[in-house]
């Protein structure tokens, strides 16, 4: 195995080990979407009638509709959690250790990202298994396509977290991320309601939702679950990943101001 791959492997293993040792984090990652699925969806089921929209071929229950959005939510929270752990690493010094590795900084950060994606896919798999146990119908034909799609959406959301971690200096500032990133991204998306429903109340909000990259991540997952590749959504996801990753690499550039502020 080349040195590059060795470095990536130890970074992924460390992240996976850390995740498995934090049982509370694993539990929270599962309970959060399950509450949405079993409580929120049950309440909304009657209130929100859904028409037949692609990729669905027939009327579906609300539980089936929000499954992709909840998969996206798991990855969104995981991306932000990884970002939080990066800020923690910076405060605790272990980020310094990582960045003094002789491998290029972009490779080290990409390895960190992939480690986070790996953890998020484990969480999504556990969530889908539990959803099936609770009687939600999940098509099996899409599972093969779902894995690479979750890698793409996980990379996008992880890169967003990485970008945020390159700008946040202190752990305390992280609460702001919850208010200004996670909640708006989640609620201004097609995770909980289809965009045409949103347009009925506000065309402007619909446009905001259509611009939100998280909407496209959710739609990419939704179509993948039915064995279809939503190419426009994939395009948005890849574009957002490139922008966030570019920004994060800029933020972690040793010659830039953000890094200068951080080492003081």
């Amino acid at each position: 195995m080349s040195g590059w791959m060795v470095a990536m492997r130890v970074i992924c293993l460390r992240e996976a080990r850390r995740f498995l040792s934090q049982r509370g984090r694993f539990l929270a990652a599962l309970v959060r979407p399950l509450v949405w699925l079993l409580v929120f969806a049950a309440g909304f089921r009657a209130a929100l009638g859904l028409s037949i929209i692609p990729p669905y071929q027939t009327y579906i229950t609300y539980e089936v509709y929000i499954i992709p959005g909840l998969c996206g939510m798991i990855q969104l929270f995981n991306g932000m959690q990884s970002s939080l752990s990066l800020v923690y690493d910076q405060e605790m010094g272990s980020m310094r250790l990582l960045l003094t590795s002789p491998y290029p900084r972009w490779w080290l950060l990409l390895s960190k990202l992939l480690a986070g994606v790996l953890v998020s896919i484990l969480q999504v798999a556990a969530f889908l298994a539990l959803a099936v146990l609770f009687g939600v119908e999940i098509p099996l034909e899409g599972l093969a396509l779902l894995v690479p799609v979750l890698v793409a959406t996980g990379l996008m959301l992880g890169a967003l977290g990485l970008l945020l971690s390159s700008t946040i200096r202190q752990l305390e500032n992280f609460a702001g991320v919850m208010n200004f990133v996670i909640f708006p991204m989640f609620f201004l998306s097609s995770a909980l309601y289809p965009l045409w429903k949103m347009a009925e109340s506000s065309p402007l909000l619909r446009d905001v939702c259509a611009f939100n990259p998280f909407t496209h991540a959710v739609e990419l997952i939704r179509f993948a679950l039915y064995g279809q590749l939503n190419l426009p959504a994939l395009g948005w996801v890849v574009l957002t990943f490139c922008l966030c990753m570019g920004g994060a690499l800029w933020g972690y550039d040793p010659g830039r101001g953000l890094q200068r502020r951080r080492v003081r």
Partner: peptide, 19 residues
């Protein structure tokens, strides 16, 4: 702190491409 001495060292060795 939660990893063993050995795991910490293995992690570092990996960061330098040693396995």
């Amino acid at each position: 702190l939660d990893m063993s001495v050995w795991s910490n060292l293995t992690y570092f060795a990996g960061l330098h491409g040693l396995s």
